[in-house]
Each structure stands twice: as structure tokens, then as C-alpha cells.
Design a binder for these strands. Structure first.
Lengths: 220, 220
DNA sequence: CCAGGATGTAGTCATTGACAACAATGTAGC
DNA sequence: GCTACATTGTTGTCAATGACTACATCCTGG
């Protein structure tokens, strides 16, 4: 190999790979461009040639993360089986990814929420939602689910599974196995969609207080 | 006022209050102990007397955040109304808090997930779950909901609402109002709990592949 | 063969978190 | 009153970091 030549050759890929390892080991806070460079045996400024700044690297990590996650979700959605089992399988794929790469998942979300995230990032972050919508629409057409606002139902499912994934990633479920939580969640959601939503009475409306107690609390 | 005396007097409270503002303005990354000190007109090392390091300050922020959030959730759970509307109100309280303090919420969770989080932090982070469980058990006893694993159902509801809160905080719901999502989520969950879960068939089991494509992807 | 872009290097700067030594303040016990 | 002492804040310092600039090396195409 000519790996010791002046040019690393695949520095960008190596940086991403090493960064992926690093964040899961030491968290995002522990990620240092200079340390990354040292790990790979290049100068401290070399990463700058591939990523304008640290955020740019995180953006790239997030993008890769979404690609990998979406691939699994889409793969799960295309597996054989009835609607319900495919639904569960999609959920498992999502949760599984979250558990395997908790820190990456956090980076993915915080990056997507960043005000100046790329359009690609914003879009790819919602593929999961699209998959859920397609499956629900299909099951609804087949008469398996009560008719309803397909778009909104998909969003609710996505949101719920997202919550399960995040909490699973955080290892926040003492005593409850992640798999059984996933099953319980999909079961409850599916049961709700079979039954349909009785009355769409308007919400009492969140109070939307200015909520100053958070800062005022420190005065007494 | 003797505010210009040698001792600030309430530096700890002032630091927390200013930090609370700062993170919502500039994110956690933008939080600097030295900048905080400058904002408050104290020396750069003064914060160190109250918080051993930056993480200690974040821990305190998270603790305060949970306290404020739990107070609202508990308040909502104690409001008058039938079980269902109280359920919706609890959800609204949670989501409302998330929308008002998105960055703080992220800090709260990442801090709680930190391996050496205090016991108090871990415990207080699950008060929301306790409230949900109490309400569901009550409604179930009243015969309003189908009987089932009360503990697990509460967890599922908590997880789902958490997901809604997180995504709402991230402003991730283009086109969908947060309030309507909250209503739709609580509706679906409630409908599912009324109907009950038909068959508790075992999950197909997540595949749990070693998932190396995330790093291998960079080789082709 | 050489012109120029891509990639990596060396050097530098301000900022940051953390620490240590010291000073001012308040307080408890005598 | 007065002195020991813990608390709280200050100044000084250090290594590490992200970001920038100028420069070196390599590769490719004309």
C-alpha cells in the first residue's frame, strides 16, 4: 500500500469512520478534529481540507447516519409479511439502529434541527415518515385499518416510535426490555388504528403561559 | 444595592439563570463558562467555585429543568376533568414545555443519559412516567379502559408523548401544528387503550445484525 | 513538460476549561 | 472585640482546541 505517501488518499472517509467510532466512545463533546488527525497520522489542519469546520463534519456524519438508518427501515418495509408484521419490523429496525448508535442518533437529530441544515439533510430525515405513511395507507386501503387521516396517523406513529428509539438509545428503560417496549408500542398504535378515533373533539388548548418561573425561580 | 461588593452573593443562581438563557440562544455548544462570567461581571474563575466543571453546571440546569417540567405535568394531572381530558392536558403540558425550552430539554435528556448522572437526576427524570401510570391505572379501575399491563401501557404513552415533544421541540413538523399532533397522538393512544391489545403475539425479533456498513461504507 | 487544482503540512492566534495561589468577606467560638 | 476558618471571588497560568494563513507536495490534463 502507498498509505505512507504524502497524500492520505481517503482522508475524508477515514475521518468519518474514525469520528463515528469516537462519538460512540467519548460522546460528541469528546470529539476533537485534532485528535482525529492524530489518530489517522495526519497534520492537525488536514481535516480542514475536507470539512470546513467541526459542524460540517457532524453534518456529514448525520447524513451518513440517516442513509444507513433509512436503508434498514426501507429494507424492513419491503420484507414479506402482512401489514402488521411489517409495521412491527419497521419499528424494530428503527429502534435497533437507535440502540446500536445512540450518540450518532443524537447527532443526527441535533444536526437536523440546526437552523442552517442542508435541504438534503432535512429531507432524508423524514424518509422514515414516508415509509410509515405508505404502509398505513396500504393497510387502510386493504380495509385492515379504520379510515382516518392517513398523513396524521403516520406522523403519530413515527413520533411514537421515535420516542421509543430515543429512550431506548438512552438506556432509559430500567427493567423493560427494548424489544418488548417496541412490541407494546406497535401493538397499541395498531390497535388504535384498527379501532379508529371516536370523536375528534378539539383540544382544550395548551395554556401557553409565558413560563418565567424557570428564571424567576432563582430570585427568592 | 450592595451588588458591587466583593461577593456577588447569588452567583450560583445568576449563573443558572444566565445559562438557561444562553443555551436557548446559542445552543449548548455556544455555552461558555468564561462568557457567563463576563456577562455577570465576575472573574473567569468564579463559576468554578459553584460548579466543578461545565458538566456540573449542565447537571444543575437539567435538574432545574426537570423540576419545572414536572411541576407543570403534575399540575396538569391534578386539574379537574375526566380521565381522557386530563390525559390530553398532561400531554399538552409536556409538549408545551418542550416547545418552550427545546435546548434545555435536550440538555435534560443527554444529561440524564450520562453514565455518572446523579440518582436524583435519574429519578426525577421519570416522574412524568409515574404520573401517566397513575392516570391510566385510575381510568382502568373505572372501567373506562380495557384491562391490560398498566405499567407497560404507561411506558408506551410516555414514550410516544416524549417523541412528540422532542420532535415538536426540534420544529420538525413542517405543516403540522404541534397542538393538533398532540391531540392526534393522545387520541390514538387512548383509542388503543380503550380497545385493548388483541393478541400479544411475540415479536419477530429484531435482526440485531452487527451493522458494520456504517464504517465499511467508506471503503468502496 | 509544465500549469494548476487538490490535498496535506507547519505555524500562529484567540478562546476555552481547568487549576493553583492569593485576597476579601462573613462567621463561629472564645 | 478578636482571632481561626470556611466561603467566595480574583489573578495568573497552562494545555488543548478550532480556525486561519502561507507554504509544500502530489496528481492530472493539455
Amino acid at each position: 500500500m502507498t498509505d505512507q505517501s504524502y497524500h492520505h488518499g481517503k482522508l475524508r472517509e477515514a475521518l468519518l469512520a474514525r469520528a463515528t467510532e469516537s462519538i460512540e466512545e467519548a460522546g460528541v463533546e469528546g470529539l476533537s478534529l485534532r485528535q482525529l488527525a492524530r489518530d489517522l497520522g495526519v497534520s492537525h489542519a488536514a481535516p480542514g481540507k475536507h470539512f470546513r469546520d467541526k459542524q460540517a463534519l457532524l453534518d456529514a456524519l448525520a447524513l451518513d447516519g440517516f442513509r444507513a438508518m433509512n436503508a434498514r427501515i426501507i429494507g424492513a418495509s419491503e420484507a414479506a409479511g402482512d401489514h402488521r408484521s411489517r409495521f412491527v419490523r419497521i419499528a424494530s429496525a428503527y429502534v435497533d439502529f437507535a440502540v446500536s448508535h445512540p450518540v450518532l442518533l443524537a447527532v443526527m437529530h441535533s444536526t437536523k434541527h440546526h437552523p442552517d441544515a442542508s435541504d438534503e439533510l432535512r429531507s432524508i430525515g423524514e424518509d422514515g415518515l414516508r415509509v410509515a405513511r405508505a404502509l398505513i395507507a396500504e393497510a387502510m386501503d386493504a380495509g385492515e385499518l379504520a379510515s382516518g387521516d392517513c398523513e396524521m396517523l403516520a406522523l403519530v406513529c413515527f413520533v411514537s416510535l421515535h420516542g421509543a428509539a430515543v429512550l431506548a438509545a438512552g438506556n432509559l428503560l430500567d427493567g423493560t426490555s427494548i424489544d418488548s417496549l417496541t412490541v407494546a408500542t406497535t401493538d397499541l398504535l395498531w390497535a388504535g388504528m384498527i379501532a379508529g378515533i371516536p370523536a375528534t373533539q378539539e383540544a382544550p388548548g395548551a395554556v401557553h403561559e409565558p413560563l418565567r418561573e424557570l428564571t424567576r425561580r432563582h430570585e427568592s
